[in-house]
Design a protein around this nucleic acid. Structure first.
Length: 492
RNA sequence: GCUCCUUUCGUCUAGUGGUUAGGACACAAGAUUUUCAUUCUUGCAGCAGGGGUUCGAUUCCCCUAAGGAGUACCA
């Protein structure tokens, strides 16, 4: 696809809660598309339902987008030529536009009470046919309208759907979609409280903000024919539409807090890196068309195209996310990772509150452990033995590595280490290899018991690096303790 | 109920009117590594079903099934 015009896209969340991962993916695709074509990515807040406003939601949305690196070119906190970008500050615009529709005969006032509407729906559901407004007020006489107005009967403004027509639009992902206008009901444009509905505000804003491509979740697909008709009634050009598939949880249902994680911040708290989530999300429902998977932001922007967006809902595979996060962890600068890890260390009392993020010993720990961690949280937790002596020894490893002769070897080793003046890992390795040779042992016969003695577990970073990081004093103390342990548990 | 959307390994996906249907995650086995992780090799596993069209359909069309969305003075 070649795009001539100046691309303008938007992400338009409602401040009704946290930023859901599905919303983040929509934002991401908008961002990628805008950057790919050198266009603009706008953020617009759709807060026209005053009853659903959630305190703090807005900030969480901003924080989530920024954390993922989805910076908007125009929008709240940023400004732009088409502002304000918060719909509750644009009420007059929508009312003015609704009046235009009233005048041109494309809309009408509806005085039906909520009670009548409820009863109507109930009977429709019972008869099992079409649901929706029965267009009762569509052809009220001007006398009736005047009388209601004079009596201050509350009203909404409804769109007069043109009947008996096919509404056709081209979805960039799904192709041609056709609806019969008769199945569309006369939707409300302006509510009794003069606030616009989503449909009204959305169409007016997308036009006023010169949006060229509407990329949104596919729950909007059935609203699109109504929007197309609205653009038509206004005499406006419709933007291009692309409806993005939803993201599902492994059980096939919606992603929710209960099933683990649903919001962007859940993933941040879960120990995922923003670059990894960015990369992973881009590949959920889209593929570059070749075999690449780990792609930088620049790669993704350069390769992004709507043609390769899948129309199919995608299950979020957390295992694969973890794998990808592991790749990003391994190459992340330790100076960045330490900022996430330090608070956990401090909280556990492993380091003092005054410890510095530039402490080279602490950075070395991160260096050693980041390549074997899939999440930041895992990295923070799996480092306990760098700070505190092991409280117990891994049972299986004890059976294997703490046999009686191991005690002798460890004791002997202790003597050698006590005289060691240099605890650099190269020297330690040299020492171990020499001892093994002299004693006619395999180096592993020394390495495995020592590892268990000083870390309590049978896996971890290279033993000599580990010893160097711990320092002579701690190593000797832990080995001596292990010797005592073996002696008092002779069965091993 | 009605309207619309969707369907390639368990999962994310590539792909074509004629391919041994490719890759990745996961899983399994092996190699490397002092352990773990990494890395490498190999294996396992898929075109929802039924009709057409065609010399030939996973690919095009229709039907069915399954899943999803919408059906508000919510977005």
């Amino acid at each position: 696809m070649q795009i001539q015009e100046k691309v303008r896209v938007r992400f338009a969340p409602s401040p009704t809660g946290y930023l859901h991962i599905g919303g983040a993916r929509s934002a991401l695709f908008n961002y990628l598309f805008a950057r790919r074509w050198g266009g603009s990515f706008l953020l617009r807040i759709e807060d026209t339902d005053r009853t659903r406003f959630v305190e703090g939601a807005l900030n969480e949305i901003y924080d989530s987008l920024r954390w993922l690196g989805l910076d908007w070119d125009e929008g709240p906190q940023k400004g732009g030529e088409c502002g304000p970008y918060v719909q509750s500050e644009r009420i007059n615009i929508y009312n003015k536009r609704a009046d235009e529709l009233l005048e041109s005969g494309h809309a009408y006032r509806c005085f039906c009470t909520p009670e009548r509407l409820a009863a109507l729906r109930e009977s429709q559901e019972k008869s099992g046919g079409l649901t929706g407004y029965d267009r009762y007020c569509r052809d009220l006489s001007s006398e009736e309208i005047e009388r209601n107005l004079k009596d201050n009967v509350p009203f909404v403004i409804r769109f007069k759907i043109p009947l008996g027509r096919a509404v056709i639009f081209e979805d960039l992902i799904r192709g041609r979609i056709e609806y019969q206008s008769d199945v569309l009901d006369d939707l409300v444009l302006i509510k009794t409280d003069k606030f616009p509905t989503y449909h009204m505000a959305n169409v007016v804003d997308d036009h006023e903000m010169k949006i060229t491509h509407v990329l949104r979740g596919d729950e909007w697909i059935t609203s699109t024919p109504r929007h197309v008709l609205l653009y038509e009634a206004f005499g406006w050009k419709t933007p291009a539409f692309a409806h993005l598939p939803v993201i599902l949880s492994p059980d096939g249902g919606k992603l929710s807090k209960r099933k683990g994680a649903a919001s962007v911040m859940d993933y941040k708290r879960g120990g995922f890196l923003p670059e990894a989530l960015f990369n992973f999300l881009a590949l959920l429902g889209w593929a570059p068309g070749d075999d690449r998977e780990k792609m930088s932001r620049e790669d993704l922007i350069a390769a992004f195209s709507l043609e390769h967006v899948s129309p199919k809902a995608a299950v979020l595979d957390e295992k694969k996310l973890e794998w990808m996060n592991g790749l990003y962890m391994a190459e992340a600068p330790s100076s960045i990772l330490i900022k996430e890890v330090m608070p956990v260390w401090k909280e556990r009392g492993w380091i003092s509150a005054g410890s510095s993020e530039t402490d080279s010993n602490l950075l070395k720990i991160i260096d050693m452990m980041k390549i074997r961690s899939k999440r930041v949280t895992e990295l923070a937790q799996n480092t306990s033995y760098f700070f505190v002596d092991p409280a117990e020894y891994e049972e299986k490893a004890v059976k294997k590595n703490f046999k009686p002769q191991a005690a002798e070897r460890l004791s002997y080793l202790t003597k050698e280490l006590e005289t060691a003046s240099d605890f650099a890992h190269q020297k330690l390795e040299e020492l171990f290899r020499n001892i093994a040779e002299n004693q006619d042992l395999k180096t592993g016969d020394l390495i495995h018991p020592v590892r268990l003695a000083i870390s309590g577990v049978s896996f971890g970073p290279g033993l000599f690096e580990l010893m160097e990081a711990l320092g002579k004093e701690a190593v000797l103390r832990r080995i001596k303790r292990a010797v005592e342990f073996i002696s008092s548990n002779p069965a091993g």
